[in-house]
Nucleic acid binder design. Structure first.
Lengths: 244, 244
DNA sequence: AAAATACCACCTGTATACAGAAATCAAGAG
DNA sequence: CTCTTGATTTCTGTATACAGGTGGTATTTT
């Protein structure tokens, strides 16, 4: 058996199952989530399903219907932008506090090592970079950054980034290997390096500003997809929930 | 019958009941929350109780035990400070965006009217101010401020402030009518006025900085309680969960 | 033909039964 | 006396039965 615990296995399955149905676009924004249908579709009972729906309600992916039950939430462009801004602000807070309070050398070393890995993935030009490698390393780097914050703050970051289009990997899905996105990675890595340097130098305000600006890359990519090439919507998780 | 809907009445009762047991200090930090005991105590069944526990887990007031179930969470001084810093940061984000994007005159009028009400409550000197009136108006003012933000951001603010000691009213509980706190209210109202002015003048950065500084009043009050007069711990909701 | 009403099917919220795992306690061995 | 081991008790996670309410549809009435 794998190392994963069996505790609350059905609940986890329900959570992942419903989330997948939503972000894959199979359930469109506004559609009511009938418990009985989902139960039959996922092969579980109502109890863990209801737990999953409540959790997704907390995450913001579904919203409660006044008369009972839940519906897939829809997001306006402004709300997506605010979610990205929110992530940048929270990451900025995490980095500012880390810079002001100091970080153990071992952790700085881990961050530096990830930076070197990303450099390696970006070696070569736009055509033959290791995009998939970047995706994984970028996710690991951001998670390591979040680990610099206290549990209280880390929890909020993780909740906000549970909205798929607000995550730092939102436009780095392996399905979205597009030149327009690949080109932005060099600038992103420059910001990565600057953020780590700012923390090392205890420059809290700079670290905060950099984190905010870094998140705005996601906003740029969002606006590119919505305004320049809407065919990419299908390639970015949950972007089908955005109206307008 | 009152206007309140009966929808999910038991769930609401469970949520409020358990939350009360925790913030009142009746359940100490670290104690396991036995479902059967709580069920008997609150006179409900396990289903709505479990929903309440899951919600409180999201709010951060209880934490999941790896082997199953939940326990009352304990907070270090640093975590409480971070929660306050987090609120200030989120309110700062809300105010910055409101200032940058503009606010309808009607809403600004409502804010101004609340400010005048607070002025009225503060009329007179420290001894005979209308403390209870201030408490209510201050809560209303902050909620009106949150209403300036989009749903995405407002949701996060509301979640963070569900931690009782992180709320703007944390040290303004009617139980905590103490001169040390009353004296801080004049400075707080000055900041209230400056925040509204900054929004009106579209000074986003100033509005953000003011919101952060305003939240630090709560931090000052926290440190006063913990370092100067620990007897006040009982008077501030949920402060009994803070260790150290 | 349009509107109102009554009926029916479905759905959610709640309670409870059941099974497997965890914790506790006791007894026995070293 | 301590540690280990085994059994019992208790707990959580899951499934399902039940009741009240909501929404939709069809029929009737104007």
């Amino acid at each position: 058996m794998s190392g994963v615990s069996n505790r609350a296995a059905q609940s986890q399955r329900a959570l992942m199952g419903v989330r997948d149905l939503i972000v894959s676009g199979e359930l469109r924004a506004g559609t009511r989530l009938s418990e009985l249908i989902l139960v039959e579709r996922l092969g579980i009972s109502r109890t863990p399903l209801r737990a999953a729906l409540a959790q997704l309600g907390q995450e913001g992916l579904v919203e409660a219907i006044p008369s009972g039950g839940y519906a897939v939430r829809s997001f306006s462009r402004e709300e997506v932008i605010d979610a990205i801004e929110l992530r940048g602000t929270l990451e900025g807070l995490a980095l500012r506090l880390a810079a002001e309070r100091g970080v153990a050398p071992a952790r700085m070393g881990e961050l530096t090592r990830l930076l070197e890995g990303i450099d390696e993935a970006l070696k070569g030009d736009v055509a033959d970079m290791d995009f998939d490698g970047y995706v994984d390393l970028n996710a690991a780097f951001h998670e390591k950054l979040w680990g610099l914050a206290s549990q209280t703050i880390r929890r909020e970051i993780e909740r906000v980034t549970s909205l798929p289009f607000a995550s730092p990997s939102a436009f780095l899905d392996k399905q979205a290997n597009v030149e327009a996105f690949r080109r932005s990675l060099y600038g992103a890595q420059t910001q990565h390096r600057a953020m780590v340097e700012a923390i090392a130098l205890r420059e809290g305000s700079r670290a905060e500003a950099l984190a905010r600006e870094h998140a705005r890359l996601a906003r740029q990519n969002l606006e590119f997809v919505l305004d320049q090439d809407r065919s990419l919507i299908r390639r970015v998780p949950a972007l089908s929930l955005v109206v307008g």
